[in-house]
Computed example of a mutant assay.
Amino acid sequence: MQEFLNWTVDTIREDRLISPWLEEKKYEWVPLVSKSITNILEKGRSVLVITDSDRDWFLKYVLTHINSQKKNRPFLPFYNFKSFYKDLDEVKTEDEIKFIKDMLNISFPNGYCFWYIGRSQDARAILPKFSKNSFLWIFDEEIQDAFNLKNNDEALDMKLLQMFRLYDKTLSAALFAEINVEH
């Protein structure tokens, strides 16, 4: 079983579709991905994916590819959060957030976590930013325990696809015990 950080660097270097910029961010990437995958595989939590409106295309991409039959792995619990609560753009009060969390606690007895991809100041970011186990890919704000990107980066869409590719490969490697993401 290969050490997770070394596996990540090797995978970035060997995969011609992942650019070297991600290797430079390995110390930001590895702990966040480790926490995310541990939440799924070890703690049995479901992942509720949310994006800002500009990244709706990416949400569709993730949900189409994460459980593709071509992967030859068990389906994993990734869901579009809007299928549970369609008025996310309208959430404004603490009571609304409390009611949503109550609904999710009932719906997911093993727990859940958010995966948010988008601008930090977007209304859809409120719930994931203030939830303990969120996996955050945040634009235009430096937030601790988040992978921080710039919305004005010309290569942003390509970077998102590369990050997803690496994340997906990490999921498979962890699922098939090729790596231990906790070490």
Rank of each mutant, 00 (worst) to 15 (best):
D56M: 08
S36L: 07
S172T: 12
D10K: 04
P109F: 07
I126F: 06
Y79A: 05
D140W: 02
K101T: 11
I106D: 15
K159C: 06
K98H: 11
Y116T: 04
T51Q: 07
V49D: 02
W137I: 12
M1L: 12
R124N: 13
N6G: 09
K71G: 08
F135H: 03
T93I: 07
E24A: 15
T64G: 08
F81E: 01
P128N: 09
R55G: 05
Y167M: 08
W21Q: 10
V47Q: 05
A125S: 14
D153Y: 08
K132N: 08
V47H: 04
D157S: 11
Y116H: 03
F78Y: 11
I100G: 02
S172Y: 05
E94N: 13
N148V: 04
K26E: 07
K132Q: 10
F58C: 00
P128V: 09
I143L: 07
F130G: 06
K25E: 07
E182C: 12
I143T: 08
S83E: 15
I179G: 00
L5E: 00
R119N: 08
P77G: 09
H65Y: 09
E94P: 05
Y27V: 09
D56K: 07
N72F: 13
E94Y: 09
T8V: 07
I12V: 01
W21H: 12
S120N: 11
E94G: 11
S107D: 12
V47P: 03
A146R: 00
P31C: 01
Y79E: 06
T8A: 07
D89E: 15
S46A: 15
K25P: 03
K101A: 13
I100R: 03
N39A: 11
F78Q: 07
S172C: 10
E24C: 13
A174Q: 00
W137F: 14
V9E: 03
A173Y: 01
N180C: 06
P128Y: 03
